[in-house]
């Protein structure tokens, strides 16, 4: 479904991402791990168009999306979240969600005048979808709260829910459990599994914490210093000396 070939990005003299080729299969949960500063987030930024690649090719659903604008990539069905959560702080939880769908009626210039009825019906429908998702995640009580007032862990969940509201084919999550408690982490895990099973969403997840992906992912890629150093099932990765070295090297 998603494929990169020899993708590269330089910052000054530094090769942040160096000749990385990966494949994400439809209907799976795949992971990307690596020590801090390995180039994981840069890689995500390249795939989602927030950064331009220096060379290489990115294909999504068989279409070349290299250096396409971020919003166009998102419209093709690949939606991401951010390592440093980016919610809309001065909007309510509900507003955060109903703004997300890409087929919203009424976002064009002429819509509010010519499609008033359709717009209202569409909004009602989107609100009910959002309310259902909130119930699913146990956040119904906070739906009229400003997003900025939520605890950090719930902001991360809100960001994920907002991404789900766009009805994506693939979700790219950048450290979905960074800085949140064990409870939230477990909750997140169940939710991701549920989304995969019920909605058939494919996942590609960055994590620094290995344990999270060990249980969740079916296949893992490991990068270090911008280079792909290993790939395989969680068991294979766990026993790969190169990976252990990379992690130990960075911690030590």
């Amino acid at each position: 479904m998603l494929e990169t070939k020899g993708i590269e990005k330089n910052f000054g003299g530094l090769k942040a991402v160096d000749n990385v080729s990966i494949k994400v299969k439809e209907g799976t949960i795949m992971g990307l791990i690596g020590p801090n500063g390995a180039g994981k987030t840069t890689f995500f930024n390249l795939i989602t168009g927030f950064l331009g690649a220096d060379s290489g090719e990115i294909k999504f659903k068989g279409k070349d999306i290299t250096n396409l604008k971020p919003y166009l990539i998102s419209r093709l069905g690949m939606v991401r979240t951010f390592q440093q959560t980016r919610i809309f702080p001065e909007m309510t939880v509900l507003e955060n969600l109903i703004v997300a769908p890409q087929d919203n009626i009424g976002e064009g210039f002429f819509d509010p005048i010519f499609f008033r009825k359709a717009l209202k019906d569409d909004q009602k429908e989107k609100i009910s979808i959002a309310v259902a998702i909130l119930k699913d995640m146990g956040l119904s009580d906070q739906k009229d709260e400003y997003a900025k007032n939520l605890p950090y862990g719930e902001q991360k969940r809100l960001e994920l829910m907002r991404a789900v509201m766009t009805s994506p084919d693939i979700l790219l999550l950048d450290e979905p459990t960074a800085g949140v408690s064990q409870d939230y982490t477990d909750n997140m895990k169940t939710y991701i599994k549920k989304l995969k099973n019920e909605r058939g969403i494919t996942f590609f997840i960055i994590e620094h914490k290995m344990s999270f992906l060990m249980e969740l992912a079916e296949y893992l890629y490991v990068i270090d210093h911008g280079k792909l150093i290993a790939s395989g099932t969680p068991e294979e990765i766990q026993n790969n000396p190169k990976v252990i070295n990379a992690y130990l090297g960075s911690e030590g």
Binding site: R80, R86, R162
Partner: peptide
């Protein structure tokens, strides 16, 4: 309208709005 809400997402976080396909 949703248009107004879209305007607010620009104020709140342009990058996030782009990531949603806006």
């Amino acid at each position: 309208s949703p248009f107004g809400r879209l305007l607010k997402t620009i104020r709140e976080d342009e990058t996030a709005a782009q990531s949603l396909g806006k």
